[in-house]
């Protein structure tokens, strides 16, 4: 007991990071984010075993700093898009079932500005687009986090009062354009239910 406390207290060695795991995603139709949302990926994707929030699942091709595909499998009324550090004192903006495409764009913007400390967030496009066979939205945005400019594309729609959405984010230099076609193909393959 003492030894353990001593070792930790002295902090003479860097603590090992919490071990997160990655699993291969099979290139067949899979349901994601413990929901009825399903997609058909190509080979080469890795799934993070950690769930950032209950209804989110993250994939990556090369590592989450270089390309990240987030699946939101039915964000419910009054739920945020990311984990809240302090639910009472630093609440994140919440999803509302009456939101339109422009509102979802603002929801993402506010969330990213807070969670990624990105004051230069700019929305580049908000347009109607089909998602999982029904009218939905497509968004594009850009922001700087840690001096690295990142871009994002989100597609989704609201079904039965819940938000289903797939978001691809990557550095604006090279990785966004390089990964977007593969991410977009997965978005195109989305089905709900």
């Amino acid at each position: 007991m003492n030894a353990k406390i001593m070792t930790m207290a002295l902090a003479l060695l860097l603590a090992a990071p919490a071990v997160a795991g990655w699993k291969v995603v099979a290139p067949t139709r899979v349901t994601v984010a413990q929901s009825t949302l399903s997609v058909t990926p190509d080979a080469g994707w890795n799934r993070w075993t950690v769930k950032p929030i209950r209804n989110e699942e993250r994939w990556s091709l090369d590592g989450p700093l270089l390309n990240r595909l987030s699946f939101y499998g039915g964000i419910a009324q009054d739920e945020p898009l990311a984990r809240e550090r302090n639910r009472k004192r630093e609440p994140l903006p919440k999803f509302d079932r009456t939101m339109r495409a422009t509102d979802i764009a603002e929801l993402i913007e506010r969330t990213v500005r807070i969670t990624e400390e990105a004051p230069d967030f700019v929305t580049e496009a908000v347009e109607p687009a089909t998602f999982a066979g029904q009218p939905g939205f497509r968004l594009r945005y850009r922001y700087t986090a840690g001096e690295l400019v990142r871009r994002g594309e989100a597609r989704g729609r609201i079904a039965d009062g819940r938000l289903y959405m797939i978001v691809f984010t990557a550095p604006a230099l090279h990785y966004f354009d390089a990964g977007l076609p593969r991410a977009a193909a997965i978005m195109d393959s989305a089905r709900i239910g």
């Binding site: 990071p17 071990v19 890795n46 090369d62 590592g63």
Partner: peptide, 8 residues
């Protein structure tokens, strides 16, 4: 090892 991506 530890946090390695299986495809990499």
């Amino acid at each position: 090892k530890g946090d390695r991506l299986p495809t990499k």
